[in-house]
Each structure stands twice: as C-alpha cells, then as structure tokens.
C-alpha cells in the first residue's frame, strides 16, 4: 500500500476472506482462500487472473451476492455479513456490472431498463429520471436510442445501456467483470475509454476485472493478480509486470510491449526500465534516442 495513513472508514476492507463451494459434498471447491485487501476510495484497480482463479467470485462478495464462508468484509467500517446490515443499500453503493451485461436487459425501452435500478432503490420519479438520463449520458448512449427497444441495439450499444443501468444507482464503487468480452477492438477501446472517463469524473473507485494485460496496464493504477483463489501479487502495473516470469508460470503474461522493451534492453538499447504501455515505450525510446544524439 502506498498510503500508510489511509482512512479505513472510506474503504472496502477484506479480512481473511474464505469461500468454499459445496462444502461437505463430492464437489467441494475452495474458490477463495485467505484474501486480505484494502480497496481505497478513488482507486482504479485492475483485477486479473486466469479463468477459475476466483476473480468473479471475489467481486460477487463485494456487494453481498455471495457471503464469505470465513472472514469478514467491511464497507465503511461495517461488517456486510452482519444481520442488521442493509444489503440493498450496499448493492446500490457497490455497483456490479456482470460479464455480458447485455444479457440481463428486459424492458421495452432503453430508458425504462436503465431506470430499473434507481426505481428499486425507492427514489422519486424525478430523481429516478434524472439519474437515468445522467447515467445514459455518462455511459455514452446516444439520445436517439433512448426510446428504442434494448433488443434492437448493436452489441456495443447494448453493453453501454447495461453499464448505464448500474451507473444510474450512482455507486461509490463500480465493478466491471470483463466489460470488453466479445467486443471488437474498436468497441473495446470505446468502452475502456468511457470507463476511464467515468473514473476521472465521478471520483469513484473502479475495479476492472479482466484477463487482458494490455487493457488493465493502460488504465489501472493498481493491479491485483489472482491465482487459484489467492492473491498472487498486488501493486502498481510496473511492480507487477516486473515479475513477468512468475506471471507466465500461472498462465498469465505481461503486455507485449513489456516483452519488446525487455528484448530491446537485451540487445543493448539503454532503457531505464521495461515499459508497460505503448505510450510509455514511446517516451522511453524517444528519451533514449535524444540522449544518444547529444
């Protein structure tokens, strides 16, 4: 952790969280074991791991959809498993966008579908409408689609509408589980840029679940790598990708540009460190080139 005196009241704290599927049967599976994390306010966190590493299970714990079988989760200092804890409020504060969120659309128009969340929160009609339109705008859904049926939209548009459905609850923490799965490169960049913008404007914590190193390296300021239900490493993208040899062992890899800069350094180009994004590589190379000319 970079900050030593972070106010824990503002954070989500996971304390020795364990989760076991189907305990006591032939199908028992330890999905999460001994997870200890502090998710600070305003952070942009990339959560990476192989399929089955427990990342989806972990994010479902954060809004109380799954209760841990061991350990505690605290949101703003309150234990979310406590009997008197308001789970419904937690779910509006910790917005979770599932994988392929467009599969959950059900209403007759886009606006009605996005309004589902705020309506469930018991907000007034005006407040619901305001939040709905704000969320649609934030998610980048163009206005002529507002009254269309969500089933008529294209894949990328549907996904934005689904993300707007969660944004409309105005959560403090926004979790997106593989938001770019199944999109073409352009749709992927648009969604990711949109998410980065949402993070920058809204002062929210954003957790981006992904297995694409390129995606998370570009946007996240902190990476949490999961492997077999445990936190494998936790740090800035630079710190995490330094260990790319260990990442390879668990079936992950650093971004391609990291490998490229490593190869350049081996070939004698004097880069100070490996790059994690394309922009960074460009700067490093330009600096080296200018330095060499002088």
């Amino acid at each position: 952790m970079q900050e030593t005196t972070r106010d824990l009241q503002e954070c989500m704290v996971l304390d020795h969280v364990d989760y076991v599927y189907g305990a006591g049967t032939a199908y028992e599976k330890h999905a999460l074991s001994d997870i200890n994390l502090v998710l600070g306010k305003g952070e942009f966190i990339g959560l990476i791991g192989h399929t089955g590493s427990g990342k989806s299970t972990l994010v479902q714990h954060l809004n109380g959809l799954i209760a841990p079988t061991g350990g505690h989760i605290y949101y703003r200092g309150n234990d979310i498993s406590a009997a008197d804890f308001n789970k419904k409020e937690l779910r509006s504060k910790v917005g979770l966008v599932f994988q392929y969120p467009e599969h959950q659309l059900f209403e007759t128009t886009v606006v009605k579908d996005v309004a589902f969340g705020p309506k469930n929160m018991g907000l007034s009609k005006i407040e619901t409408d305001m939040r709905t339109f704000a969320a649609l705008k934030e998610a980048g859904v163009s206005e002529e689609l507002y009254d269309a049926s969500p089933f008529e939209l294209s894949g990328g548009q549907k996904r934005r509408v689904a993300i707007a459905g969660v944004l409309a609850m105005q959560p403090d923490i926004l979790i997106l589980d593989e938001p770019t799965a199944g999109l073409d490169p352009r749709g992927r960049d648009e969604i990711l840029d949109r998410i980065a913008q949402i993070h920058a404007e809204g002062n929210r914590t954003v957790i981006l679940v992904s297995h694409s190193m390129e995606d998370v390296a570009k946007y996240a300021s902190r990476l949490i790598v999961m492997n077999e239900g445990k936190v494998f490493c936790d740090g800035t993208p630079k710190e995490v990708f330094e260990k790319y040899r260990e990442l390879e062992k668990i079936g992950l890899a650093a971004p391609q540009v990291t490998y490229l800069s490593e190869a350049l350094r081996q070939a004698g180009v004097a880069l100070p460190h490996n790059a994690t994004t394309l922009d960074e590589a460009k700067e490093l190379l330009l600096a080296d080139w200018k330095g060499g000319r002088r």
Partner: peptide, 13 residues
C-alpha cells in the same frame, strides 16, 4: 442464477 444475481445487483428483490 447469473441473471438473478445481475438483477439483484440492480436492487431487484
């Protein structure tokens, strides 16, 4: 199960 969870995440009861 998945859709149920997704709607619960949006406050469905």
């Amino acid at each position: 199960d998945k859709i149920m969870k997704a709607q619960q995440a949006r406050g469905a009861d």
